[in-house]
Amino acid sequence: MSLHIPEKREDDALSREHAHVLQQLLVAIEAVRIRRQEQYREQRHLQLKRFTQQELNDEACPTYKNWLIGRSRRLPERAMLMQIADYLECSLSERNELLLAAQYVPEQPEWESADLQRALEYAQQIMVTLPYPAAVVTHTFQVHAANELFLHLFGLPPLATIPPQQRTTPHFLLHPDICRRSTMSAEARALWQQHALFCFQLFMRQNALSQYEPWYQQYIREWCELPGFRNYWEKARIASRQEVAPVKHMLARTAITGELVPIRLRYMQIAISGRTSPAVAALLPDDEATRAVFASFLL
């Protein structure tokens, strides 16, 4: 008759543990919420957020008020916790504070310092073996290295001569000369626009957990100065997600005659580890004419 007592004690212990975890999670959420409320006390939020408990409950987590008054002790799933973090505009470190408070594995930060340098060097070793235009890029869309074929294709000088703040994918993609050579027909223009949307959606996906970081906001402010960026960025936010990059048409100069000829390129990103950054971005030929142009530079 006493066989069920240990089980009940285990249930009670588990319930107390859940209550303890939920309490420390609420403390962590409230700390971020109050911090964000103070941040916007003297300025108007673009979306008119007030970061109140009621607003958090209405906009992100319908059970939040029930947690606060003790009506519910059910721990949130990771997806719900990330939704709360999105509402609170959490930085990566703040997201990890919430995840750890709820006893979830934190999000992995990007490579830094010596680890990043080693990864960049390894990516560059891969890049130089490719017979295609290729560059080493990070999740910030900073271009750290590019092979000769890449520089020739886009009419760029040696990478070291370009100011660091201009060595980014948007600067190259939206360069007036590159735009002109990529939009020589109605079909090419449509594909180029799709390619631009794909690139900016890729940036959003790769940095979804860092969109409120200062570096992210700084990059967007700088890129908004580029012609056409703001328009494509806003379209990319609401457009259907593109899983595969569209074929890119452009005019390229042959190595033998210097003549401008139409080519077709397909974008491919090569990851060098379990992380998305750094990576080798390569442009593969999509037809025989493009292969011939590439081959002329390898003679």
Results as ranks from 00 to 15, higher is better:
Met1Thr: 12
Glu7Asn: 15
Glu7Val: 14
Ala13Glu: 14
Arg16Trp: 04
Arg16Asn: 07
His18Asp: 13
Gln24Glu: 14
Leu26Gly: 01
Leu26Tyr: 04
Leu26Gln: 08
Val32Arg: 05
Ile34Asn: 09
Ile34Tyr: 08
Arg36His: 03
Glu38Leu: 11
Glu42Trp: 11
Arg44Lys: 13
Arg44Asn: 12
His45Asp: 15
Leu46Asn: 03
Leu46Thr: 10
Leu46Lys: 07
Arg50Leu: 13
Asn57Met: 06
Cys61Ile: 04
Leu68Glu: 05
Arg71Val: 04
Arg73Glu: 02
Gln83Pro: 00
Gln83Trp: 03
Ala85Leu: 03
Asp86Ala: 10
Leu88Gln: 08
Glu89Asn: 10
Cys90Met: 09
Cys90Ser: 02
Ser91His: 06
Leu92Arg: 07
Ser93Glu: 14
Ser93Gly: 08
Glu94Ser: 03
Arg95Asp: 02
Leu100His: 06
Tyr104Ala: 01
Tyr104Asn: 01
Tyr104Met: 01
Tyr104Ile: 06
Val105Gln: 13
Val105Ser: 13
Pro106Tyr: 11
Pro109Gly: 09
Gln117Glu: 15
Arg118Met: 11
Leu120Trp: 10
Ile126Arg: 03
Pro131Leu: 05
Tyr132Lys: 01
Pro133Phe: 03
Ala146His: 04
Leu153Phe: 05
Gly155Arg: 11
Pro158Ser: 08
Ile162Glu: 02
Pro163Arg: 10
Pro164Leu: 02
Gln166Leu: 05
Arg167Ile: 13
Leu173Tyr: 08
His175Gln: 11
His175Gly: 03
Arg180Lys: 14
Thr183Gln: 15
Ser185Ile: 09
Ala186Lys: 13
Glu187Asn: 09
Arg189Met: 08
Leu191Glu: 08
His195Thr: 11
Phe198Gln: 01
Cys199Tyr: 00
Phe200Val: 11
Leu202Met: 11
Ala208Asp: 10
Leu209Ala: 13
Gln211Met: 14
Tyr212Ile: 00
Glu213Phe: 01
Pro214Ile: 03
Pro214Asp: 07
Gln217Pro: 07
Gln217Trp: 00
Gln217Ser: 02
Arg221Leu: 14
Glu222Asn: 14
Cys224Thr: 06
Phe229Val: 04
Asn231Trp: 12
Arg237Gly: 04
Ile238Gln: 08
Ile238Val: 14
Val244Asp: 12
Val244Asn: 08
Ala245Lys: 09
Ala245Pro: 09
Pro246Asp: 11
Pro246Leu: 03
Met250Phe: 02
Met250Gly: 04
Leu251Tyr: 13
Thr254Lys: 05
Thr254Trp: 00
Ala255Thr: 02
Glu259Thr: 12
Pro262Gln: 07
Ile263Glu: 06
Leu265His: 04
Arg266Phe: 10
Met268Asn: 09
Met268Ala: 13
Ile272Pro: 02
Arg275Lys: 15
Thr276Lys: 12
Pro278Ala: 07
Ala289Thr: 06
Arg291His: 10
Val293His: 09
Ala295Cys: 07
Ser296Val: 02
